[in-house]
Simulated scan of single mutants.
Amino acid sequence: MKGPTPQRHGRVAAICGLLVLSMGGLSFAAVPLYRLYCQVTGYQGTTQRAEKGSDVVLDRVVKVHFDANVAAELPWKFEPVQPSLDVKIGENTLAFYRATNISDKPTTGTAIFNVTPDAVGTHFQKVQCFCFTEQRLEPGQSMEMAVSFFVDPALATDEETKQLSELTLSYSFYPVRTPTKVGGQAAVSNAEGKGG
């Protein structure tokens, strides 16, 4: 009985190599694919991005609470300017957060965000947000950053959300090790939050 031929060894090695490359490619694509899935479905409270404000405003009001967090390795103070707002469903609303660089060096941060309860994610629409771009702060600099949003009127008829009267919009800032360059400058939205 003959053993495996060198040609067969080569095929097995090629198949194993393709499997390793495929797994590497899938793991590389996992984060952007997961992010896309969350954005499309609102999974885990991922908010949606709207091209324009709502055309329909209901008389029903929800209270939107604002939460702010910052990673320990980013030397910023970060807080909502207003702790909460009463907002009519469908009403285009502007809320502000304030960030201050408490270090003696320029730092750049990026914000991740979600809303709770998670089921609200598909109904929370951002028109403009400081979270769409990286934010750079010089030493000691403080900046107010805006988020323009509305709560989609579909919240009032969705079985999972129609009874809700309160929700929380939460941001967490993390340091950016290599800021994105735009025309030789780090990408930063202005104090009105109109970047992105």
Rank of each mutant, 00 (worst) to 15 (best):
residue 1 M to W: 10
residue 2 K to Q: 11
residue 7 Q to A: 13
residue 8 R to M: 09
residue 8 R to I: 09
residue 9 H to E: 14
residue 14 A to R: 11
residue 15 I to V: 13
residue 17 G to D: 06
residue 17 G to P: 10
residue 18 L to G: 09
residue 19 L to Y: 05
residue 22 S to G: 13
residue 24 G to F: 04
residue 28 F to K: 11
residue 28 F to I: 07
residue 29 A to P: 01
residue 30 A to S: 10
residue 31 V to P: 02
residue 36 L to P: 01
residue 38 C to D: 00
residue 42 G to C: 00
residue 42 G to L: 00
residue 46 T to A: 12
residue 47 T to W: 01
residue 50 A to S: 12
residue 51 E to A: 15
residue 51 E to S: 15
residue 51 E to T: 13
residue 53 G to E: 04
residue 54 S to Y: 08
residue 54 S to M: 02
residue 55 D to K: 11
residue 58 L to D: 06
residue 59 D to A: 12
residue 59 D to H: 11
residue 62 V to H: 03
residue 62 V to F: 01
residue 63 K to M: 03
residue 63 K to Q: 13
residue 69 N to I: 00
residue 70 V to K: 07
residue 71 A to E: 15
residue 71 A to N: 11
residue 72 A to Q: 13
residue 73 E to Y: 00
residue 75 P to D: 01
residue 77 K to R: 15
residue 77 K to T: 13
residue 81 V to T: 14
residue 81 V to Q: 10
residue 82 Q to C: 07
residue 82 Q to L: 15
residue 86 D to W: 04
residue 87 V to L: 02
residue 87 V to R: 06
residue 88 K to M: 00
residue 88 K to S: 04
residue 90 G to E: 04
residue 93 T to S: 12
residue 95 A to R: 00
residue 95 A to E: 01
residue 97 Y to W: 12
residue 98 R to H: 08
residue 100 T to Y: 10
residue 100 T to D: 11
residue 107 T to E: 13
residue 107 T to H: 15
residue 109 G to L: 01
residue 109 G to P: 08
residue 110 T to P: 05
residue 111 A to E: 02
residue 112 I to P: 09
residue 113 F to K: 09
residue 113 F to Y: 10
residue 116 T to V: 14
residue 118 D to N: 11
residue 118 D to M: 00
residue 118 D to W: 04
residue 121 G to P: 08
residue 121 G to N: 05
residue 124 F to M: 02
residue 125 Q to D: 03
residue 126 K to H: 09
residue 127 V to G: 09
residue 132 F to G: 06
residue 133 T to K: 08
residue 133 T to N: 10
residue 135 Q to R: 03
residue 135 Q to E: 13
residue 136 R to G: 05
residue 136 R to K: 12
residue 137 L to T: 11
residue 139 P to K: 09
residue 141 Q to V: 03
residue 145 M to R: 15
residue 145 M to N: 13
residue 147 V to P: 11
residue 147 V to I: 11
residue 148 S to E: 15
residue 148 S to M: 06
residue 148 S to Q: 15
residue 151 V to R: 04
residue 152 D to E: 04
residue 154 A to N: 09
residue 156 A to L: 01
residue 157 T to N: 06
residue 157 T to D: 07
residue 158 D to S: 07
residue 159 E to P: 14
residue 159 E to D: 12
residue 163 Q to A: 15
residue 163 Q to N: 14
residue 163 Q to D: 15
residue 166 E to F: 00
residue 166 E to A: 04
residue 167 L to V: 05
residue 168 T to D: 03
residue 168 T to H: 05
residue 168 T to Q: 07
residue 171 Y to T: 09
residue 171 Y to G: 08
residue 171 Y to V: 05
residue 174 Y to A: 13
residue 178 T to Y: 15
residue 178 T to K: 15
residue 180 T to N: 12
residue 183 G to M: 00
residue 186 A to P: 12
residue 188 V to H: 14
residue 192 E to G: 09
residue 192 E to V: 03
residue 193 G to M: 00
residue 194 K to P: 00
residue 195 G to P: 07
residue 195 G to A: 09
residue 196 G to A: 03
